Amino acid sequence: RSSAQALLRFLGIVFWAIAAAHALGGVLVILMFKNYRYLFQESYLSLPGWLAIAAALILLPTGILAVSISIKSSRNKQGTFMYLLLLLLCIEMSSAVLAHVYSNRAASQLESAMGYLIYQQNGSCSPDPGSRAVDVMQRKLQCCGVRNYTDWLKARAASWHLTACVPTSCCKEKYSHCRGHLKHLEHLYQEGCLKKLGDQLWFVMLYVFWCCTVLSILELLAGVSNVILMRHQPFQDFRFL
């Protein structure tokens, strides 16, 4: 009984810490799909982030109940605690599955969406980066093209009269006089945007997935501890919820 109380008190405090980490993961997922919404067609891809935030909010009263039960238990509090754990477990499992499925689905969309953006901009090199979605993306991620700068050359292959160059958003910030010409490749970002954004997407989704997995295990431990304490309660203390 004393071990179950100590474990429940510890888990209650851990729940508060995990609530902050979980909320952070949810915000990262939502911001990822909001900042690059022109690359992702389905708005529901950010659903794992919203579920993570919902779980973080429920974790706060759950942690308070866990600490309270470890100090002085009652059937009402223990029953409410079990209901919250069950609700959290459902949310966590749903969020983990969706994070895994949606990360693969979003990753499969990235290459075609980026390629479409680049082939749309098959005109002359832009002297004023930042006015187009593709320029914003390349500046923010410090990348050039889908896989590398040659994607811009392929996009302009049909326009034989255009000078071989890339947008100035492909230029590294320290080269202020760079105009996207290929004579100085060292002035350009060498890495493509697909890998950089794909890595960011994979990181935030994996973060949410493992937060959900770890939290589900801790919730099961909290449930077992609560059941042990309920078994030590006198039979007369049962109350209908």
Results as ranks from 00 to 15, higher is better:
residue 142 Q to K: 10
residue 209 F to K: 09
residue 175 Y to D: 14
residue 194 L to M: 06
residue 174 K to M: 03
residue 141 L to V: 04
residue 184 H to K: 02
residue 176 S to A: 14
residue 179 R to M: 08
residue 150 T to H: 10
residue 193 C to Y: 01
residue 191 E to N: 06
residue 162 L to H: 10
residue 124 S to V: 01
residue 172 K to S: 05
residue 181 H to F: 08
residue 131 S to V: 04
residue 161 H to N: 13
residue 213 T to I: 14
residue 210 W to Q: 04
residue 201 L to N: 02
residue 170 C to I: 13
residue 138 Q to S: 07
residue 156 R to P: 01
residue 181 H to L: 06
residue 134 V to F: 05
residue 128 D to F: 04
residue 196 K to W: 00
residue 136 V to R: 14
residue 214 V to R: 02
residue 178 C to Y: 13
residue 146 V to R: 13
residue 141 L to I: 03
residue 125 C to G: 14
residue 180 G to D: 12
residue 182 L to D: 11
residue 213 T to W: 12
residue 197 L to Q: 10
residue 170 C to L: 15
residue 141 L to G: 03
residue 180 G to V: 09
residue 197 L to W: 05
residue 216 S to N: 01
residue 166 V to D: 15
residue 186 E to C: 02
residue 142 Q to S: 15
residue 165 C to V: 02
residue 130 G to R: 14
residue 208 V to R: 04
residue 172 K to T: 06
residue 195 K to T: 07
residue 191 E to Y: 01
residue 169 S to G: 06
residue 171 C to R: 07
residue 212 C to N: 15
residue 165 C to D: 12
residue 128 D to Y: 14
residue 190 Q to T: 03
residue 138 Q to D: 04
residue 216 S to F: 03
residue 157 A to G: 02
residue 158 A to I: 02
residue 157 A to C: 00
residue 216 S to H: 01
residue 146 V to W: 07
residue 153 L to N: 08
residue 179 R to N: 12
residue 124 S to W: 01
residue 185 L to K: 02
residue 169 S to M: 10
residue 210 W to G: 02
residue 154 K to T: 10
residue 216 S to T: 11
residue 134 V to W: 08
residue 129 P to C: 07
residue 126 S to M: 05
residue 212 C to F: 00
residue 216 S to L: 01
residue 141 L to P: 13
residue 182 L to F: 07
residue 130 G to T: 10
residue 149 Y to W: 15
residue 132 R to S: 14
residue 183 K to L: 00
residue 126 S to V: 05
residue 144 C to A: 09
residue 160 W to T: 12
residue 132 R to E: 13
residue 164 A to V: 00
residue 167 P to M: 12
residue 164 A to Q: 15
residue 161 H to I: 03
residue 202 W to M: 08
residue 209 F to D: 07
residue 205 M to E: 08
residue 193 C to R: 00
residue 184 H to I: 00
residue 136 V to T: 13
residue 154 K to S: 12
residue 189 Y to T: 02
residue 135 D to V: 06
residue 216 S to Q: 02
residue 185 L to T: 09
residue 127 P to W: 11
residue 130 G to F: 04
residue 132 R to H: 15
residue 168 T to R: 15
residue 213 T to D: 03
residue 153 L to S: 07
residue 124 S to T: 03
residue 180 G to Y: 13
residue 188 L to D: 13
residue 145 G to I: 03
residue 184 H to P: 00
residue 126 S to A: 11
residue 155 A to D: 09
residue 154 K to W: 04
residue 184 H to M: 04
residue 196 K to R: 05
residue 175 Y to T: 04
residue 149 Y to M: 04
residue 195 K to Y: 05
residue 200 Q to D: 12
residue 185 L to N: 03
residue 154 K to H: 12
residue 126 S to I: 08
residue 201 L to W: 02
residue 144 C to H: 03
residue 145 G to H: 07
residue 133 A to P: 06
residue 128 D to Q: 15
residue 136 V to K: 11
residue 193 C to D: 00
residue 130 G to M: 05
residue 152 W to P: 05
residue 185 L to Q: 08
residue 128 D to H: 15
residue 164 A to C: 00
residue 129 P to F: 11
residue 205 M to T: 02
residue 212 C to H: 10
residue 172 K to F: 08
residue 159 S to N: 15
residue 181 H to T: 11
residue 164 A to Y: 05
residue 135 D to Q: 09
residue 202 W to D: 13
residue 140 K to S: 15
residue 126 S to K: 10
